[in-house]
């Protein structure tokens, strides 16, 4: 019995070994060949691609292989340049039917294929893809949603900003990714963001506040003010930071009021905000905070003091009760001057 089992196992494994060895060699050879081919063809096609991108010169008739390679080169190029070159690329991809093909896959392929199609549409530079991509911000698969978001960013789709904000609020897409993209699109006056400010979920309010701070202008400061007294601590903290980014005129006083907030993270955020605004009136309060408060707010206060008035900070560091945060901030100031 035992022997039979072993013989069977041995044979099965030997077969597997041979197959894997074969796979290894085949993959190796294929990869090498692809690399070499790609390198050669890409060299040839780069000139063609550059001509298309810069001067709208249509490429000559190409073999299917060359056409695919050209498409690859163009995808890379579409990432390297801005301006009218992208329109040429979009026209080309439309002409060769790539946009249609990818849109079809997006509509009905397997999840990973949809994600790939969504991604590629961003590089194809064609604005025609925007509505489908916005629709797929609600795709059941996370990878597809992320790819759609990223491509909408690449396409500079300002009309999609609202959809992206909604997807962020519902946590359908990663916040960090979407935020970067919204900034790239430059979508400031988006009504969806204002709607977030009054959402029932504090996390959504927090997201809205952050976004407004990053994308808004000084005129939006009034919308953010009421959130400085929001019941949720993280919303208040984000409001402090957002207001400092908008750098509106007279918020120093309201921010200073937050220095005595019950939540240490809010105090820390207020300190950071005042440092950002270089609010000299806050200096005394900040130096005091840096010496007596708990870790995070004290640290933020010391750091803010350094930004507002480095000399005053260095002077404070010589005091006996300065504490570790003022000492660290003073060290940083001094080291930066060496």
């Amino acid at each position: 019995m035992g022997t039979g089992l072993f013989v069977g196992a041995f044979i099965a494994l030997s077969v597997a070994a041979v197959l894997l060895l074969g796979l290894l060699s085949v993959r190796r050879l294929r990869l090498l060949r692809t690399e070499r081919e790609l390198a050669r063809a890409a060299d040839r096609l780069r000139g063609v691609a550059a001509a298309l991108v810069m001067d709208g010169e249509r490429p000559p008739a190409l073999s299917t292989e060359d056409a695919e390679l050209l498409a690859r080169v163009l995808w890379d190029f579409s990432r390297q340049i801005t301006g009218s070159g992208r329109e040429e690329i979009a026209e080309y991809f439309e002409e060769v039917g790539l946009v249609d093909r990818q849109l079809a896959i997006l509509a009905s392929g397997a999840a990973w294929r949809r994600a790939q199609a969504a991604f590629v549409l961003g590089d194809a530079c064609s604005a025609r893809a925007i509505p489908a991509l916005v629709e797929h911000l609600r795709d059941p698969d996370t990878a597809v949603r992320s790819a759609a978001t990223r491509s909408l960013g690449r396409l500079r789709a300002t009309e999609a900003a609202g959809g992206i904000v909604d997807a962020m609020a519902d946590r359908r897409i990663p916040l960090a990714l979407a935020c970067g993209i919204l900034i790239e699109i430059g979508a400031g006056g988006v009504p969806e963001i204002t709607a977030l400010l009054v959402h029932t979920d504090p996390r959504s309010r927090s997201t809205g506040v952050q976004l407004l701070g990053l994308l808004g202008s000084a005129a939006d400061a009034d919308r953010l003010r009421p959130l400085l007294t929001d019941p949720d601590g993280s919303v208040r903290a984000q409001a402090c930071l957002a207001l400092s980014r908008l750098a509106a005129g007279d918020i120093g006083e309201t921010l200073r009021a937050r220095l005595s907030d019950a939540d240490p993270l809010v105090r820390a955020a207020a300190a950071e905000a005042l440092g950002e605004l270089q609010d000299e009136d806050a200096l005394d309060d900040l130096l005091h905070m840096a010496a007596v408060d708990v870790f995070d707010p004290a640290r933020a206060a010391a750091s803010a003091s350094a930004r507002i008035d480095p000399e005053a900070l260095l002077a404070a560091a010589t005091g006996l009760d300065a504490g570790q945060h003022i000492a660290e901030a003073a060290t940083r100031v001094w080291a930066a001057r060496q």
Partner: peptide
């Protein structure tokens, strides 16, 4: 294989420029 596919859809550039990247 899934990782390989996901790598073709890298969003690292976006992450690099995002202020929310921790």
């Amino acid at each position: 294989r899934d990782v390989g596919r996901a790598l073709k859809r890298s969003v690292e550039r976006e992450a690099f420029v995002s202020p929310l990247t921790p």
